[in-house]
Computed example of a mutant assay.
Amino acid sequence: MAATAAALAACTAIVAGALLEGYSHLWHPLALPGAIGVPRAGGYNLLLFGLPGLLLAVLAWRLRARLPGTGLAPRLGAAMLLCSALAWAAQGALPLDPADLDAAASRLHASAWMLWWISFVAGATLVAGGVRALRAATVAAWLLVPGLAVLAPELLGAGASQRLAFAAWFGWMWRAAGPLHP
């Protein structure tokens, strides 16, 4: 399920980027082809954010059901992962306003983006506390997701850093979907 969500998001980003004149995956944010007023934005938001987010929400829900013997913290972590996946989906329902990045629409999109990575880091940490097999992947996620999403845009550009952060998130979720050994 995580691989399907990641493939859907990646293919959508590649195709939409090719259709949007002047768009650079290296420099432009991933949400730009889904911004208000951009042609085909609704479909882009559905295929990049909406459906992958809902698929990963189902994965997080199933993960929570597989954690009953690990204690309360990992189950709360799975609930945070559910919030992260729903925040990913919400980014598509709350598109950016490229004409006014300080507008309410852009602020709501940015809030969903922040909720995505903050709830992911908290959730992954809590799940890994009870699932030894996820600890190494979680340490990598601690460094990659917030580091790339928040700190690296100045160094790598918004496009590259966001895509790497999203790949790390999808990768961790894919790893968490595998067999669990508390």
Rank of each mutant, 00 (worst) to 15 (best):
G53V: 07
L19N: 06
W88G: 10
C83P: 04
D97F: 11
P74H: 05
G159V: 14
A140F: 12
L96R: 14
R64C: 04
L144G: 11
V139D: 03
L94N: 06
G71I: 07
A124K: 04
L54R: 09
V139L: 15
A176Q: 09
G159T: 09
A112S: 09
V121D: 09
A57I: 06
W169G: 02
A31L: 02
L56D: 12
G130H: 06
Q91G: 14
A18V: 09
V58G: 03
F170W: 12
I36H: 05
A35I: 05
P52L: 01
G71W: 01
R107S: 10
L19W: 07
W116R: 08
G171H: 11
A103D: 14
P29S: 03
H181S: 15
L143D: 01
A152W: 05
H28F: 12
A79T: 10
A6L: 13
W174C: 13
V131D: 05
G178I: 04
F166P: 00
A168H: 10
L82W: 10
C83T: 11
T70I: 00
L19E: 10
A141M: 03
L47E: 14
G71Q: 09
L48V: 03
G43R: 01
P33Q: 04
N45Y: 03
A87E: 13
A73M: 12
A137H: 13
H109M: 04
A3Y: 04
F166E: 02
Q91W: 15
A79W: 11
G178H: 02
F49E: 07
L108F: 11
L180G: 04
P182N: 06
W172K: 09
A18I: 12
A60N: 05
Y23C: 05
L96A: 06
A160C: 12
G130S: 09
L76K: 05
M80T: 01
A99E: 15
L47W: 11
A122H: 01
G130T: 12
A65M: 15
Y44F: 15
M173E: 11
P95E: 12
F170C: 09
A152R: 05
A158E: 12
R62F: 07
L67R: 01
V131C: 13
G77M: 08
L72E: 13
R175T: 15
L20Y: 02
S106L: 06
F120R: 00
R132W: 06
L30K: 00
L82S: 05
L81T: 10
A149Q: 08
V121Q: 07
A158V: 13
T12L: 07
A87V: 13
L96N: 13
A122V: 14
V58H: 02
V121I: 15
